Simulated scan of single mutants.
Amino acid sequence: MIAATNPTIERITGKLSDQSLLFRYTIKLVLIVSFSELILYRLVSRLGVHLSKLAQEHEWIIPTFTALTQIGQWLLNVVAILLFLALSVAAVNRVASRGFTGLNRIVIPCVALLLLLTVGFLLVPPAFLGSAIYNIVALVALICLMVEYLSTHTEWSHRAMGITYLLGVGGWLYYQIVSTIYSFIGTVAAPPLVYEAHRGGEGLLVLSSILVMWAYGQGVSFRTRNQRQRRRAIWFWATSISVFTVMLFLDYLLHRYDAGMASNIRKAADGIGWIFQFGMGYTFFLPFAFYLTGLFCWSYTVIKLLNMGRLAGYGLGLMFIAGYALLYSNLTLMVVLGAMLLSMDRQRRDATESAPATNAPMVSRPDSLAGGHI
């Protein structure tokens, strides 16, 4: 007698289609409106300031950028409302599906406290102590969510991406918390390791945006038996490495070819860096090729995951749209919501529907040869 085991299959759980109708449309709106706010408010408004000299020659520039900035400010308020709704629904779903146990005992109170503090800061502007408490609560929530993510994702690519992102955002939050506390105390001593944490956090966040493709952007791997996919992977990586190498030494090559052209391109790059510095918090202390590589890897992976309907695409999209410098409360809430969505996307082993009977004999017992008569 041999006990047959039920075969199992792996499937992705936590897809957006598995969620409620309210949650699905809220998450979609959050991503769309957040991306629009990033373009119109945090980037285009800074671009308008950068084009102040050009605006003296063209009168249409000032009213155009003013209108776009006003739309971006309106979208900023819409994003805040949608984030409140999305975080509330996500917290209720976590409690309903898992109960108030485990990490939920920390995550749910932290999310609720962040929402309450955000509302309170609308009525009373935060002082040094309030900002420090807000960032500490956000850091605790992110640590718990990433611990949950690392415990449910055992692949090294996922864990490397999650750890680097947590350390990257943690570098910014540490910089904000320690600097705010020292300002609140009124000491003239320099906070410990704030400069190193700030620069290191930015570098780790850029690295995390590159590792996103390793973790989720499958389809351009050499480890495939499909010759067509292998040729596509060879073409993709050869082109990517070539472009990255050229961009890494572009300034040197242009300077050797034409010093004036190299100077003009360098000034244009500084202007672009200034826009992204004020819009997303990147200081561009690393070579520009690393930032562009991270942008391409992140964009490819997020678009692919969104087409598959996976919550990881929405989570990664929100986490990196928020940028590095979380200067606004809605950006912090965006990162927390993105981490919650990322932890909801996981693989689960399910038993197949047709399970064989257990303790079944290897040879079935035949009917009586004499038809039941002797």
Rank of each mutant, 00 (worst) to 15 (best):
M1G: 12
A3T: 12
G14K: 04
K15S: 11
R24P: 05
K28M: 10
L31I: 13
L31S: 09
I32E: 01
S34A: 12
F35M: 08
L51M: 11
K53S: 08
K53L: 07
W60R: 01
T66G: 02
T69Q: 03
L76D: 09
A80R: 15
L82S: 03
A91T: 15
S97P: 00
G102R: 00
I106T: 05
V107F: 00
A112E: 10
L116V: 10
F121M: 08
L122C: 07
L123G: 06
P125V: 05
L129W: 13
Y134N: 14
N135T: 14
L142C: 02
I143Q: 02
M146N: 14
L150V: 14
T154M: 11
Y165M: 12
G170C: 04
Q176Y: 09
Q176W: 09
V178C: 06
S179G: 13
S179E: 10
G186H: 07
T187I: 10
A190C: 01
P191K: 13
P192E: 08
P192H: 06
Y195T: 12
L205H: 13
L205Q: 15
A215V: 12
G217D: 02
F222C: 02
Q227C: 03
A233C: 04
A238W: 12
V243A: 06
T245M: 00
L248Y: 04
F249H: 03
L254W: 02
G260Q: 04
N264V: 13
D270E: 09
Y282A: 15
L286T: 10
P287C: 11
F288R: 10
A289T: 15
L292S: 07
L295H: 01
W298Q: 08
T301F: 01
L311Q: 06
L311A: 11
A322M: 07
A325Q: 10
Y328M: 14
G338Y: 01
M340C: 08
D345Q: 02
R346C: 10
A357C: 06
M362Q: 10
P366T: 13
I374V: 09
